[in-house]
Amino acid sequence: MNDLKPFCKLVWNSVSLADEWSNVLAKAQDISFQAEYEMVRQGLREANVYHMYPNAFDKQIEQITEDNLVFLPILRSRTYSGFSHQHYPTEVLDSNSFVFGVVAENLEAAKRFRNASKSGDHVTQGLMLGYPECCSKFFTESWTKQKALDPCYETALNTLSHTVENDVVNVEGHPYLNQMLRYFGLRITPFFPCSFNCQEAIQVGEAWHLVMKCIDEDTTDKIMELLSQPLSWSLYKGIIEIKTPLFRGIVNGYSCDKRKELRWTGKMK
């Protein structure tokens, strides 16, 4: 089966919930992007993957330069609407494309990251991005070897306390590590943990949480509230569906030979 083009749809469970929460979602993505950059600027990690846009590159370069950071391009990708699990390389650079690259604290680090990216060395990339080694290795195994482009289900199966009931994986975990809502901009950490209870990943999450709170405390609190709520996530026929107490969303997934479904009980904090 051919994978679907990127798309992302969200319907609220009621109009009043939409009124109350849609503003949080509107802000969440920006906070995440800012936090990604801030984590490098504040020296909390070596590198950050970065999108340079043809219609904004002047301002982007100015900021990077002012912050004494460096940018190196890695590839040109077509733009997409919705959520994408991978880039769409292109030669053309126009308003329908962007440059995927790395922002790092110095040129040496940027080159090292670029080399790791080009050689498919996810562990080095993960470490430079500040992710725990166990999580980087897990990602390499599931994403590269098992071709699980969105390994939420695999992470759930790798979480010690999980249970399986009628082929559905029930799992609880730390909201910092909840990656099931990131399609809608809702997340604290930007990586797949090896387990939803990985202590190292939770520690990394503390730093991200603090940085996000400094950017927008109220919205970050709301994001944490959403990430802590129970939800169901399923991948079936190349479409991921997420149901939460507030909304239901669908997004492009990837082809796999069976239905993958998990229930996040969302307790642990």
Partner: peptide, 15 residues
Amino acid sequence: YTRASDKPTYERYEI
């Protein structure tokens, strides 16, 4: 549920 948008899309039919 609220409506996702003003314009329908056809992912279900592609799959």
